[in-house]
């Protein structure tokens, strides 16, 4: 180990944060860029499935709540792009990687939102799963990422609560509303569990990320936490648990559950989800359509500067 590497590892082991200007191994930087940008892209692409229901929200209150929630996702994307930019990559590079498929985003957003209840299920389950992961990431070793996570966690609990509240209204509503809620739960429960990633034994980046304290808890541990906390929440809604094998294990102090359909997981990751193409096309289309606006801004700015210079002369 070089003295630089030793110094770096000493900080990691002492739970000191790594900050932007510090020396860091190239692999650490790359690993961080991969994880943070993927996280940022997930927030941004995540605007689409819920955004799909803003214009159809069934009450003005729900419309305002959903709009501010989706807006928060954009905000979180911004915090994360901002954290990632401190590592020496520009936002446009990151966006290009997203649009060309070089960078990934969470597969959960490749599932379609088919009914209003899906908005509730996403807030409750998808944001719920994200929070479990993000709470853990508040202790990540890279300073800007950690601070971003702390900020995001503070805002995210509103997301889960509004989703659960929307589900509650449906579950306690008409038979049609309740059926809608059950259907959404059935469809989003499994993909939400998959959000924690493959089993640790199969995860390509897990070990190094744990060593560098980029990740603080394993995929399976976090998933277990989520499984455990969700049982009671389903019960309170009065809905049926989608996993027929869910069973309390006294010895482990955790719920036992069915294994996931990993073929589906890999299939969606590899582009075969309902919405993979649609999500990227939407992003590209909005981005391309914004081009002339961004051009106009820089042209205007250029003219303004020229005018200022002329006035000064």
């Amino acid at each position: 180990m070089t003295p630089q590497e030793e110094n770096f590892m000493r900080k990691i082991e002492a739970e000191e944060k790594i900050e932007p200007k510090d020396w860091m191994p190239e692999a650490y930087r790359k690993n961080l860029i991969r994880q943070i940008s993927q996280h940022a892209h997930s927030e941004v692409i995540g605007m689409q499935p819920e955004g799909n229901w803003i214009t159809r929200a069934p009450s003005l209150r729900r419309k305002a709540v959903l709009l501010s929630k989706v807006q928060d996702e954009a905000g979180h994307g911004l915090y994360l792009y901002s954290a990632c930019e401190t590592l020496g990559i520009s936002r446009s590079e990151m966006i290009e990687q997203l649009q060309t498929g070089k960078a990934k985003y969470s597969s959960i957003f490749n599932y379609p939102t088919l009914t209003w209840a899906d908005v509730g299920a996403i807030g409750w389950l998808v944001d719920g799963a994200a929070i479990v992961n993000q709470v853990s990431l508040q202790r990540t070793s890279y300073g800007p990422y950690s601070r971003g996570m702390i900020r995001i966690c503070k805002e995210e609990s509103f997301h889960q609560r509004q989703g659960y509240e929307a589900m509650l209204a449906l579950a306690k509503g008409s038979p049609e509303q309740k059926a809608m809620a059950q259907d959404a739960l059935n469809r989003f429960y499994w993909p939400a569990l998959m959000m924690f990633g493959p089993h640790d034994s199969e995860s390509a980046h897990s070990q190094k990320s744990m060593e560098w304290k980029i990740k603080r808890e394993t995929n399976d541990d976090l998933r277990q936490k989520f499984v455990d906390q969700t049982v009671k929440q389903i019960e309170v809604l009065g809905l049926e648990h989608p996993d027929k094998n869910i069973k309390w294990n006294e010895e482990r102090g955790h719920y036992d559950s069915s294994d996931l359909n990993w073929d589906e997981f890999w299939s969606v990751i590899n582009g075969n989800g309902h919405c993979n193409r649609q999500r990227i096309e939407h992003h590209v289309a909005a981005h391309d359509e914004g081009e002339w606006v961004r051009d106009a801004i820089s042209a205007y700015n250029e003219k303004k500067r020229a005018k200022k210079a002329q006035n000064a002369a």
Binding site: E85, S90, R91, S92, I95, E96, Q99, T100, H287, G290, E291, R294, D295, I297, S298
Partner: peptide, 11 residues
Amino acid sequence: MTNITEKLELF
């Protein structure tokens, strides 16, 4: 693909 947000400055 065009360079985008670099047309804008970072603050």
